[in-house]
Write a protein that binds this DNA or RNA. Structure first.
Lengths: 210, 210
DNA sequence: TAGATTGTTAATCGATTAACAATC
DNA sequence: TAGATTGTTAATCGATTAACAATC
């Protein structure tokens, strides 16, 4: 139930979806381990942690396993999500095809400047004034923040006060959560800095070798 | 030198930049620990790991610390980066202001469909045919992949064969790296699934309590 | 000097992995 | 049955934290 095991669950799901498409009926912990580049014991440990069991000698039924994982990840139904901040990143996420495939539905965008409306197909964009009523009317639980960093904490506080339970934050600032809410900060700068660091470190190593 | 310590280095940097703006001259491990929500021992351990030292009783000099961290993260100069795939996410990244501030310069985009050119200011977009020559001519070491998942592995293999050393991948597929290259996979689906899982888990807990 | 903070060592904690009995 | 795979326990590994001597 730690963060890593949740992430792996998400990866198992994606592997299993491909196996299902290919017509596979069963799968062994060893296969999934290979797909993720981990040990088979890890796979079995993860499953046992979430109460998923297979058949000794017979492995796991692909269909059943997928159903179990989807239930755990809350993917047995469509999740309605809103996006606050309709700049480049917000708009890109609205148009992102991958979400639809995973039963994640962006049902509205919010922005201080409603003139951006033209850019997106089929997803309405409202002014910030509508935020509160919309969240209540649609019982929205999950929101994506894609506003500039200076506005991010204020938007987060608003969302939390309106009853949002989970936030995915793209603003380059670590949001502090007060109360019963999950905040996942995606820091693009940090991600590319990691790449740059390791790429440089690798080059340095090569320099030493030669 | 593990992945977590690199990530923290990136966060220290961002805290230090703010402190510098505010005119702070020195900082204690305790201050940085508070800012990141970790223990001060962790901060000192990280610094000692990277050979950064402070003054007993006097803490760390903000300016010097920032310089040291920037050098380690390779941020003492502008890093030229290219983006392959100029769909919504690619374009959003090209327009992302945060990169400029961090000395990350997107110098070109590449796409099979060059008609997208109109959308971005000042960053040229070329056809895939120009990729090889451009990488060689400009000695590009870092690339961002923002193509659809089916094309991602092929693009990655191309980039690697052209000498790219670090890849930040936004396609929802775990790329396999052969050889001397760093690949950092940013999986947006996975990030939002984590939020949904924890938000649901939190709601379930509340249900039990009441 | 007395007090505060670093730098490092040792202890703790938690996650991964190895190993193997159970069993299909 | 013999062989293969799960599920779980115990061992290992690595990262975080506590503690404290050194010292400014």
């Amino acid at each position: 139930m730690n963060e890593n095991s949740i992430e792996r669950l998400s990866k198992y799901k994606s592997s299993l979806q491909k196996l299902k498409t290919l017509g596979f009926l069963k799968v062994f912990s060893d296969n999934l381990a290979d797909a993720l580049g981990i040990q088979s014991a890890q796979v079995r440990k993860d499953f046992s942690l979430f109460g998923i069991s297979g058949k000794k000698r017979g492995g796991y039924n692909v269909e059943d396993l997928l159903t179990s994982i989807n239930t755990i990840l809350g993917k047995d139904r469509i999740e309605n999500v809103i996006i606050v901040g309709c700049g480049n990143i917000g708009i890109a996420l609205m148009n992102y095809r991958g979400f639809v495939r995973e039963k994640i539905k962006i049902i509205a965008g919010f922005d201080i400047d409603p003139s951006r409306m033209a850019k997106v197909e089929k997803i309405p964009i409202y002014t910030m004034e509508k935020l509160k009523d919309f969240i209540h009317a649609e019982s929205v639980k999950i929101a994506i923040i894609a506003v500039p960093d200076i506005a991010a904490q204020r938007v987060a506080d608003l969302l939390i006060s309106y009853g949002i339970k989970g936030i995915l934050n793209f603003a380059p600032i670590k949001l502090k959560s007060q109360g019963e809410v999950v905040i996942n900060n995606v820091d693009l700068i940090q991600e590319i800095e990691k790449v740059i660091y390791y790429a440089n470190a690798m080059d340095d190593d090569n320099g030493k070798e030669s």
